[in-house]
């Protein structure tokens, strides 16, 4: 591990990427603990508050001529026919008892506000927490499934391989998005719906169960290639068990393939989460993710409010780029040949 660390540090891009990814992780942790962005859901600004840099911009209402908003004249007296008329006084009294306070709404926010006046920067931070958690957790799950099944199919071949290939074919023969819908329907309304009440886990499971197939094929091919290599035969000759040959001997030698595929999966899953949230199958409405931000941004962009789109895109692009670079460097650092 020591050498891995020292080798990664020699790689400038790797170190920078690692720094960025660690910063994101710290941010996520802080968000999860409620240290930052805990109040992302509060309406702290005017609707579509502009970013501070741009200064206050004239709102749509201010642009209207004074008085244009109110119709003139008095409304006719309907109390004779209105069945609710006797209640009005009562309601008015009760309303007067409640204290209504309009929060202080600022005209500008650091990175602007959304339709409800929520801080976009806070939303982006909180959204990072959800999106990255979903992407990474789902990718790890999918990698676990794909690697295990691929290792067994490739190493043992024969009947095991036939069965797993059949399973793979079943999964890949259904159009991906249809499979996602079907799973979502089962998980949401079936007997399992209570288990995955929190919503975010449901998305993780859906992505993992539909996304392991590519990893499976790659790992299987690698294992088929390696199982008859001499170093594996040599391990068998000294009495190493099948499990040890599969996971102690072959796995480190195919690790780079898995790592690269893992990074691609994280990227892909974060994007799929966006699509799912957009379609209403993703994270629940009381949560925010990059996906929900992007789907809101779609309508905002039409009226020229670009900042929510910018926030989600920048956060996502920086993380995904740094993450891909990091896995690349990690693969190089793990390869003893490049030492």
């Amino acid at each position: 591990m020591e050498t891995l660390w020292s080798r990664l540090r020699q790689d400038r891009i790797g170190t920078i990427s690692l720094g960025i990814v660690l910063a994101y992780l710290a941010l996520i942790l802080a968000a999860a603990l409620g240290l930052v962005s805990a109040g992302w859901n509060r309406e702290v600004g005017l609707p579509y508050a502009t970013p501070s840099l741009l200064g206050v911009q004239p709102s749509l209402e201010a642009a209207l001529p004074a008085g244009a908003a109110r119709p003139r004249g008095t409304s006719p007296d309907l109390s004779a026919v209105d069945p609710l008329a006797p209640k009005y006084a009562e309601w008015a009294r009760r309303t007067a008892e409640l204290e209504v306070s309009e929060p202080e709404r600022s005209a500008t926010l650091p990175w602007g506000g959304d339709r409800w006046g929520r801080d976009v920067l806070d939303k982006a931070v909180k959204g990072s927490q959800v999106s990255i958690a979903v992407g990474v957790a789902a990718a790890l799950f999918a990698t676990l499934i794909g690697t295990l099944l691929g290792a067994f199919a490739g190493f043992y071949g024969g009947k095991t391989n036939d069965f797993l290939e059949w399973l793979y074919n079943v999964f890949t023969s259904v159009p991906g998005i249809l499979l996602v819908f079907a799973l979502a329907a089962v998980l949401r309304s079936g007997g399992l719906s209570k288990v995955f009440a929190s919503g975010i886990w449901m998305v993780v499971i859906i992505l993992a169960v539909t996304g392991w197939t590519g990893m499976y094929r790659l790992v299987r091919a690698e294992y088929m290639k390696h199982r008859s290599r001499e170093y594996v035969l040599a391990a068998q000759a000294i009495g190493a068990s099948a499990g040890s040959r599969m996971f102690v001997h072959i796995l480190p030698n195919v690790g780079h393939v898995i790592l690269v595929q893992l990074s691609l999966l994280v990227v892909a899953f974060i994007k799929v989460e966006v699509i799912l949230s957009f379609l209403g199958l993703g994270v629940p409405v009381d949560m925010v993710s990059w996906g929900t931000m992007l789907s809101e941004a779609q309508t905002e962009l039409v009226i020229g409010k670009w900042w929510q789109l910018a926030a989600a895109t920048v956060f996502m692009a920086v993380f995904l780029t740094a993450f891909s670079m990091l896995t690349d460097s990690l693969r190089d650092a793990l390869d003893p040949k490049l030492r």
């Binding site: 290599r229 170093y231 000294i238 009495g239 480190p252 030698n253």
Partner: peptide, 23 residues
């Protein structure tokens, strides 16, 4: 056979392929 593997061993032809590069 596991027990007997201790008593009979093999050296392969290609030393470039018979050692696990990651160990």
């Amino acid at each position: 056979m596991m027990a007997f593997r201790r008593r009979i061993q093999i050296v392969f032809q290609n030393p470039y392929a018979s050692l696990n590069p990651r160990l």
